[in-house]
Structure formats: structure tokens, C-alpha cells
Design a binder for these strands. Structure first.
Lengths: 302, 302
DNA sequence: TAAAAATACTCCATAGGTATTTTAT
DNA sequence: ATAAAATACCTATGGAGTATTTTTA
């Protein structure tokens, strides 16, 4: 009679595979069984979800909108089942954490073991992606918790600030700025800054600082990671900004490049958690925050 | 195996009836059938939803939280089914509109027939309640569209302003303020204002104006409707504020009390729509807004 | 001809019914 | 004794299987 959760699951699988036989396999049923359930769903909704014409299956435009709704429903179902587990035994099960690449290597190595130790029934899964991707994933209920720079559009997510992470200046040894004890805004004027490639939120931060200090971005160069960036600075190709946590946690950095503090009114990023308001882990998050704060690099500890 | 939408429906009905026999009736099944489905749901979730001890059934605390989740899921299902209908035939089916009492009698009589005429396949249902109740209802998917004063906490609802509705001063005939052509802030000082009872958002608006102008609320008096308020003003018990739309649409008012314009920088309320972001009618709403604007009282037409 | 989806049918798991027992007042 | 929920057992709907046909490249 009425729509079924199972039909919605099948529907979404088919809408990603776009092939009945292959989708049926993913659903662990036979192809005719899938065909009939999809047909039932289409009859129930009173519209065509798939175009199955010329040898290939595609979602109709109506199907697209229905798929959006179906994802929302199944996400809510997932939340309900998760909360049920959580009520029986909180701080257990899968905790899927998403972290940006300019944070992960400096925070996680110390915090993750501590987290595992504090909550031994948690099974931690870490995913490292850039901000946009992480937000997509958490909104689609593929992640439970993000650790990122909070100075971004959070699309309705809840957030909690954990650390202030000031930026430091990295220059080649022997650079003319190195004699100064503190770098002021005017010192950066016309300096060439090497920056990360597009999509890294740290890049946007650094561009703001460029604009403010009238430094300019080095043309024809975009690094894909902080370590590349450090290598280029060491090679004398320019200067760059680094987060304090990186400088503190990676002892090699100070041996490779000169680290200089920026002006008093120092630019910084705010590192913190973000999560879906409907997450069944909402109430656990302040506890995780405690662990993250306690086992963080000294330079950001409040 | 897994949770069923039907189980969730039964669960919510039982959680409102708190009696298996009566709830089963509402579900159109027998009592044992309901018992077994509830039991299955409890087994699936791995927790007790109901306490069935001393002759009466109650929701457990865990049950409460699960009911919240279940409501959310079924609301999303309702949205999906609604959108399916809507894709087949937009501007049709039930449109459940919630309106506050200080707007309904002045806007609806002209707009509703026009709306029916523009969209003959709509079945309009009107609900008149105060703001808090309306917001509760729309969040619970019991209404599709609100028409209210937008100067309130909208709890994540989308909104669209329709009219600016200035307040006017109503005094008894022969009142000493009546000789003035325009009322200024200082004229209201120490005047006794008669206001609506608690819960009307117009009351809060009027209190703000009180505070600003140092007028004071008449003690021991709270009207339950604008017409009561007008009657009291006519009887010489004090003065009050009235929305322009009321004065324009109800010809009796000017025969009963004196209407005076307020200062240039006149206080006003903003009347508009509010709806759930997930509503399947989101795309229709600008069209409804057009009709509402066109068939509104002249005093608020832009 | 081959590969993919739809159709025809068969089967069995389970939602829901009836009859009855248990429990609490 | 009564009223409510649970249990036992039966029935039948419909989800999923196998075999086959239809469709399209």
C-alpha cells in the first residue's frame, strides 16, 4: 500500500548505480525483485522515478527531487537507530570524524590515542578532506563530527570552538626579515607569499592577510600540502604562513625554515567541532571536546 | 528485521493514546496486532518504549526521545509524499494556513476568495491561533503556511514579508489628545494604554511602544480581542493601539472611537508568511504571496 | 545475438486476525 | 469480577525467488 523504508533504500541504491542488475546485487536481492519494488514505489508516488529507454537507466528530474527526500528520510531513520543504540550504551559504536589536512597531522596523533583510551568502546574512523567535502559528507550523514577551521559557512551545523591557532611567518634562513624581532603589517608589503592550492580554507585565510598587509601571492605556484610549502620556502622561493600547531608539533620545521612571530594583533584561525543538530551524539560532544582540549599542543591550550 | 514506517505510526498513536485497545482502534487493527508490532519495534531498537505496569501505559524517557525522532521521520515521509503529489499537480490539495487573530479578520475575507479563485484545485484550511501555537503546529507539519507578524523568533522557518502595517492610536471621542493632528512620542507619556492579553504578539509590540514613549499599561485589564479593546476605549477606560488594516477593513471602528495617526517615524508590524524549509510547497509560496499582496487592504499595499 | 529490464509464477515470511490466558484492580 | 495486555495459533498478503519473455543495441 504505502511507501516502505526498504523501497527507499533500494531506490537510492538504484539511483546511484543506474543499473537494475548491479543495484539488485548491492541490495542483496534479485533483479526482478528490485524491478517490482521500484515499480511499486513509482505507483505509490504516482510518478516515474527512472527513465529506462535506450539501454541505460537515468533518474528523471522528479526522481532527483524524490531521491533528495529519500536521503533525508533515511538519514533521520539512521539517527533514530543510532540514538537507540546510544541510549543503551553511550560513547560506543562508530564515531566517524572528518578533519581538514592542515589540522589532522598536528592534532590527531596525540588526541586520538587519548580519545580511544578515555572511551574504549568507541570505534574511531578518521576521514581527511577539505572543508567543502567534509560539510557535504556530514550533511549526508556520512560523518558524525568535523574538526576544522570554524571561519567558514557552516550550513546549519552546530559548532564548538576548541582552540585559537595563531599564524606564524616562515622565511628561508638568511632572509632579510629575519633580523626583526616582531613582524609588523608594513613589513609584509610587497613580499611574495607562497600559498596552498584552492579549496584549503587556510589558503583563504592567508589571502585575507595578503590583502590586509598588501603582500602578494606568488604567481604560478600552489602547494598541495604544508610540507610542500615548507620545502619551497626552504628552497628560497618565497615566504609563507604556518599555523602554530604545525610549528610546535613538527620539530623538523624549525630546522628547515626560520619561524617569525607576527604582530601583536596576530591573525589566527579558530579550530573547533561541527556536527549536525540532529546527531544522536550531540550530548557526547562536550565530553569529546574536553579530551581534545586536554591533549592538544601547548601553544593552543587555553 | 528492520524498523517499519507503519511501526512508527503505530508507536506515535500509542504514545498519544497510552492505551493499547484504544490506540489499536485508531490504527484500524486489533489490540494483539498492535502489541506485537510495538514489541517488534522495541526489540529492533533494543529498548523499552513503554512502561506497562500498574494498569496504565506510559512512555519511558527513552520512549519520549524515540517519539521525537519518529515524528521527524514521519514528517519527512509526509513531505516526500506531498512533493510527489505536488509534482503531478502543483497548486492543488490541502493548503493548511495558520493565521494570528489580529490579522485573520482583516486580511482573510478578501484574500481567501481570491486565492480560491486563482487556484481552484486548492482545498484551503484556516487555523486561527496565537503565534507560539502556530509555530509549534507548523514545525510538527500540522500546517503548511503561516500568516503572522514576522517580528518573532521564527525557529528556523523561512519567511517572506508581505505588508508593513502601521499602528494607529485609538482614543475615546472627546479625549484631550484628539485636537492634535499628529501624535508625538511625548504626547503618550503617562497615558494609560489598554492592551491585549498575554500571548498575542501585538501585545509585545505595544509594550515596546509603551516603554519607548513612557506610556504605561493599564493595570488589571487584558483584552482577549481587538473588538473588546475597542469597546473598552469607547467606554472611556483608556486608549489603545490598533493596526491600520483593522481600522481600514472594519468600518465600525471609526464610528466607535477616534483614530489618530502616530508620529512620522511610526511604529508598525511586518506581516508576512512563514513556512518550513522542507515544505514541498516552498516553490508555490511566492505565487500565493502575489495574491495576498494584490487583494490586501489599500493601507498596506505597496 | 547478447544484455538488460519486465513479466509470470511460486513460495514463504510476517502482518494481522481470532481465541484464550495472564495480570492487576 | 472486570478490564487490559500478553500469548497462542491461524490466515493471507506481499516480498523475494526462479524461469521466461520482451526489448534494444
Amino acid at each position: 500500500m504505502s511507501m516502505t523504508l526498504r523501497q527507499l533504500e533500494y531506490f537510492l541504491i538504484l539511483s546511484s548505480k543506474l543499473n537494475f542488475r548491479i543495484a539488485a546485487e548491492s541490495c542483496f536481492i534479485t533483479q526482478p525483485a528490485l524491478s517490482s519494488q521500484i515499480k511499486l514505489l513509482e505507483e505509490n508516488l504516482g510518478l516515474l522515478l527512472f527513465e529506462r529507454n535506450k539501454q541505460n537507466v537515468t533518474l528523471t528530474s522528479q526522481g532527483h527531487r524524490m531521491a533528495e527526500r529519500a536521503r533525508h528520510i533515511l538519514s533521520a531513520v539512521n539517527d533514530m537507530e543510532g540514538e537507540a543504540c546510544n541510549l543503551q550504551k553511550p560513547f560506543s559504536g562508530e564515531l566517524r570524524i572528518g578533519v581538514i589536512p592542515t589540522i589532522a597531522p598536528y592534532i590527531l596523533p596525540s588526541v586520538i590515542p587519548a580519545l580511544s583510551h578515555s572511551y574504549p568502546d568507541l570505534r574511531l574512523f578518521l576521514h581527511e578532506h577539505r572543508t567543502d567535502r567534509l560539510i557535504e559528507m556530514i550533511l549526508d550523514n556520512k560523518l558524525d563530527l568535523l574538526l576544522l577551521d570554524l571561519n567558514v559557512e557552516l550550513k546549519g551545523l552546530c559548532s564548538l570552538a576548541l582552540y585559537d591557532d595563531p599564524f606564524l611567518l616562515a622565511t628561508p634562513f638568511g632572509h632579510k626579515l629575519n633580523t626583526k624581532s616582531v613582524i609588523l603589517k608594513k613589513d609584509l608589503k610587497d613580499q611574495e607569499l607562497l600559498l596552498l592550492e584552492d579549496g584549503h580554507c587556510m589558503r583563504d585565510h592567508a589571502l585575507d592577510i595578503c590583502e590586509f598587509s598588501q603582500a602578494r601571492e606568488a604567481p604560478d605556484f600552489r602547494a598541495s600540502s604544508l610540507s610542500t610549502l615548507i620545502g619551497m620556502v626552504a628552497a628560497g622561493s618565497g615566504i609563507t604562513l604556518l599555523p602554530s600547531i604545525a610549528v610546535e608539533m613538527d620539530a623538523q620545521i624549525r630546522k628547515t625554515v626560520q619561524i617569525l612571530p607576527l604582530t601583536k594583533n596576530t591573525p589566527k584561525r579558530t579550530i573547533g567541532f561541527a556536527w549536525r543538530p540532529n546527531s544522536y551524539r550531540s550530548e557526547e560532544i562536550p565530553h569529546y571536546a574536553k579530551v581534545f582540549r586536554q591533549y592538544s599542543p601547548a601553544c593552543v591550550r587555553k
